[in-house]
Computed example of a mutant assay.
Amino acid sequence: MQSVIESEFNAHLKTTQATMNAISTQLEMAVNLCTNSLNNGGKILIFGNGGSAADAQHIAAELVGRYKTERRGLAAIALTTDTSALTSIGNDYGYEFIFSRQVEALANKNDIAIGISTGGSSTNVINGLQAAKNSGCQLIGFSGRQGGKMNDLCDINLVIPSEDTPRIQEMHIVLGHTLCHLIEQTID
C-alpha cells in the first residue's frame, strides 16, 4: 500500500512541475483577461461535466465569496448548478446544448467563458464555448492530454501535459485556485 501512496504523490509532483513549466505564462494571460473583464463590469461563466462541473462550482464560489482576501464579490456563475435549467434544456434540446443555451441567455460581450474538459473535446463544453464566442466573450479552456478541440476555439487553452485523468483534474483545481488568488491580487 505504501508504494501506491508514494507512486500517486510522485505522479502528482511530476505533473505539477510539468504543468508549471508549460503554462505559467498562459495562466498569467488568463488572469489578465479575467481581471480586465471583471473591472469593466463583465462576468465569468464556468462550465464542465462531472468533476469538471464540481471545479466550475468551486472556482465560481471562490470568486463570488472570497479565496483568501477580503474584497468585493466578483461576478462568476457556474452553469452546472441549476438543475431545472440543465434538465429542461437536456430534455427539450439535448444534453449537448445544456451549456450553450445558458450561455445564449446569460453571456454579454466582454464576458469570459471558462470551459473545463479533461480531454478538451466534450461536445456540450465545446458548444458552450462556441456560443460564448458568438456572444463576443473571450474563451479560456482548462484541458489536458493534447488540448482537443479547445486548442482551436479558445483564446487561451491551459493544457495540462498529462494523459492521466486524475492528474489533469488535480491540476485543474490548482489552476482554479491560482487564478482566483491572482485575480484577488490584481482586481480594482
Rank of each mutant, 00 (worst) to 15 (best):
F9W: 10
A60E: 03
C154I: 04
Q57I: 11
A61Q: 10
A54V: 11
R66Y: 11
A18W: 01
N151C: 15
S121A: 11
L63M: 13
Q185M: 13
A78Q: 06
Q26K: 07
A76I: 02
G48K: 03
M29Y: 14
H181N: 13
F99W: 11
D188K: 12
T69S: 11
A78E: 06
I183R: 05
C137P: 10
N21Q: 15
N10G: 03
L79S: 03
I126C: 04
H58R: 14
Q17E: 09
C34D: 00
S100I: 05
A85T: 02
N134G: 06
G51T: 15
Q57A: 14
K68T: 13
A54H: 11
A131Y: 06
K43Q: 14
E163K: 12
T123L: 05
E96I: 00
A61C: 12
L38K: 10
I59D: 03
L38R: 11
D92I: 03
A22F: 10
T35F: 05
C34R: 03
T80L: 00
T87P: 02
L33N: 02
I168A: 02
L158H: 10
T87H: 02
I160T: 04
V125Q: 03
P161H: 12
G94E: 15
G94P: 14
E170D: 15
H58W: 14
V159A: 08
S24L: 12
S52Y: 14
S24Q: 11
C154V: 07
M20G: 04
L175D: 08
Q2P: 07
A11E: 13
G115S: 03
T118D: 04
E6V: 13
E6P: 00
T186D: 04
N110I: 12
T69P: 04
N151D: 10
R71D: 08
V4G: 05
R101E: 08
T69V: 07
L33G: 02
L86C: 05
E163G: 08
T15F: 07
A75N: 13
E70C: 12
L79W: 00
L182W: 14
G115T: 01
F99Y: 14
A132H: 00
T81G: 11
S162L: 14
D152P: 02
G120E: 04
G147V: 01
E104H: 06
F97T: 10
F47R: 09
S37C: 09
Q130C: 02
V4K: 10
I168Q: 06
T19E: 09
E96Q: 08
I5Y: 02
F9Q: 03
R101V: 03
Y95Q: 07
A61E: 09
F47T: 09
C137I: 02
F97H: 15
T178S: 13
E8C: 12
V31T: 12
G115I: 00
H58P: 09
G41S: 04
I187A: 13
N40V: 12
K149Q: 11
S7G: 08
T25S: 15
T83A: 15
